[in-house]
Amino acid sequence: MPISPNQGSTGGGTLVTITGTNLANTSAVTFGNKPATNITQVSPTEVTAVSPSGTGSVGVTVTTPGGTSNPVPFFYVGAPFKSSLGTTSGPLAGGNTITVNGTGLSTATSVSFGGVTATPTVNSDSSVSVVVPAGAAAGPVPVSVTTAGGTNNGLSYTYVEAPTVTALSPTSGPASGGTAVTVTGTNLDTTDSVTFGGTPAPFAVINASTLSAVTPPGTAGAVDVVVTNPAGSDTVTAGYTYVAGPGI
């Protein structure tokens, strides 16, 4: 007498299908010593029922006018607990793979990002990997994980759009570096790096359209300026010119 699924939440509420023989006129289904609810006679070989709350492994039995069946094991699974996301932000288009860390994740069947679900790959009871679906708009969305034990919420993932740079001011300075450069554009509030000629520069985000960077030392000549965030990067080709100091 197989049952499907053979595991469910400790809080109960799992719809279980029981198949076998001589199941007509089923009067009771029990999980351990607890009666199931919403028993439905589908056919003489199939019955459905909703599991009560419980813990561990219990035997499921069906009672008909002919007697009570042999028990078939059903396993109660605790609700998942999520502790962190391996990556907390990414492109609005999705497509990047992130990890969800926690406990009770071995039976994970879906991960929801703001209501859009994706099917995860289970790495272990403490980790799943999932390809992030596309978002509807830039900004944070709640993340939930559903397992045989239930659904757990509480984490947040932020969709971001790639930056664009429209202007630099000033556009030149000494090769010794140390020049404060104002960068204007869009989607700059999620910037995680600014480089001048491939060399990282210290920076401070002012708002979504403005940031300030301090040029690192460089070699005389024009260099590319690249602004990067989790969704991508924008390059201003030969956007800044290092000027050699005077010599006597």
Rank of each mutant, 00 (worst) to 15 (best):
P142E: 06
G221L: 06
A136V: 09
V143H: 06
P170Q: 10
A49P: 01
F196Q: 04
T10R: 00
T21L: 15
A138V: 13
P174F: 06
T45K: 08
A204Y: 06
N33I: 10
T219K: 14
V165T: 10
S69H: 13
S57W: 02
A180N: 15
G114P: 03
P230R: 00
V205F: 02
P120K: 05
I39F: 04
G232T: 02
V62E: 03
T88M: 12
V116T: 14
T158W: 01
T26W: 08
T121F: 10
T88Q: 13
V223Y: 01
N6E: 15
V128E: 04
L168D: 05
A93Q: 11
G139L: 03
V132Y: 00
L15C: 00
S53N: 12
P142L: 04
P91E: 05
V165A: 09
P142T: 02
V236C: 11
A136G: 11
T186C: 03
G197N: 07
T210L: 07
T190N: 08
G104I: 03
T151N: 07
T97N: 13
N123P: 04
T19Q: 12
T26V: 15
I98H: 02
V29H: 09
A93C: 01
G154E: 08
G247H: 15
S9C: 06
V77E: 10
T210D: 08
I3A: 01
T171S: 13
T117M: 07
F74E: 02
P174I: 02
A244L: 10
S129A: 14
V16E: 01
S83G: 10
G114D: 03
S106T: 11
T48C: 12
T195D: 07
F196Y: 13
S172M: 15
T99W: 04
G150E: 08
G102Q: 11
F75W: 09
T64K: 01
A137E: 07
F196S: 03
S89T: 10
D189E: 13
L188G: 02
S193E: 06
N25M: 10
E161Y: 00
K34L: 14
P120G: 04
A137D: 03
G245C: 10
L168I: 12
T164P: 02
S4M: 10
E161D: 14
V50I: 14
A148Q: 07
T184L: 01
G66V: 03
G59I: 03
G66R: 11
S84Q: 15
T210M: 09
K34P: 00
T19I: 12
G78S: 14
